[in-house]
Structure formats: structure tokens, C-alpha cells
Computed example of a mutant assay.
Amino acid sequence: MKTRVNRTENIKKVKNSIINITTEKTIINRTEDNYLYTIGDIDLLRTISKLIKSNEISEVANTILNKNKQDNGITFFINKQAAYHNKFHMIDENMSTLDDIEVIIDTQQPDAVIDWILN
């Protein structure tokens, strides 16, 4: 999971955007080229799975996940500003001028991961 921190953004707010869609225990790292990222296993997606269910967007999520599925993984995006405000807006491509949060799932079993996220 990664996102760029723009010059006009407060790094703490960007970190909170990631924490709001993962957990408070998430360790967030910063790169030299101003990206924040976190790496984890499927448990990192537990909050995203809960947000999909609580926002009742399983059908939309299913479409996005399957559209962005490859043999070795899945990629999708979450709107960074929405995440900061504890709103969950999942999209299939980076649409924001400030950059969205990119979620990259490396797996040899993308269908099983999609099933786990949605169920």
C-alpha cells in the first residue's frame, strides 16, 4: 500500500488516511521521493474488507477487484482524502490530482484473495 505526499499535504494527515483503512498498529514508512508505504500480509486488508461490507459495496468492490486482477496479484485504489475523513471510496484507477492510495496485493491466488476480502 502506498501513496505520494505532495508538498501541499500534511504528512500526518496522509498517514492518518492509511491508518483509517488499516489499523492504528500499521507501521508506515517514508521513501526519499516522498511516498508513504506499508507492507503486510492479508491481515492488513482486514479493515478494508470490513469497510467494504459495512458500506455495502461488495458488488462494486467485486467489479473493481476482478477488473484489476492479474495472474500474480490485484491492484486497486482508495481515495486518500475520503480515507482521511473516515469515508471509504474504492476505485479502479488513480484519479486524484493529489494521488490516491494504491493497494497492491501480491498473490498467486487472486480469486481466493478476492473471495476472502468480499466474504
Rank of each mutant, 00 (worst) to 15 (best):
I105E: 05
L98F: 14
V103N: 00
V14C: 07
I114T: 03
F88H: 05
I117V: 01
I48F: 00
Q81K: 13
T23A: 06
F77I: 02
T8K: 12
N68K: 08
I28C: 10
T23N: 08
I114Q: 03
I52N: 00
N68V: 08
I39D: 12
V5E: 04
T3Y: 08
K15G: 04
F88I: 04
T63M: 15
N72I: 11
I21F: 02
T26C: 11
A61S: 08
T23Y: 01
I28V: 14
T75M: 14
I27M: 09
I27A: 12
S54F: 10
K80Y: 06
K15V: 07
S54C: 09
N86L: 13
A82D: 13
F77Y: 13
V113I: 15
L45I: 02
N79M: 09
K12T: 08
M1D: 01
E102H: 03
T75C: 13
Q109K: 14
Y35P: 02
K13M: 15
I52T: 02
G40A: 09
V60S: 10
G73I: 05
D41S: 15
K13W: 15
H89Q: 04
H85Q: 07
T107A: 08
I78V: 09
N79C: 11
Q70K: 11
D41T: 15
I114G: 02
K67S: 13
L51W: 02
K2V: 10
V103G: 00
S17F: 06
E32T: 09
N6M: 11
R4Y: 06
R30P: 01
R7Y: 14
D99F: 10
T63F: 15
I105H: 03
S49H: 05
N94K: 10
E32A: 09
Y35A: 03
N94D: 15
I101N: 02
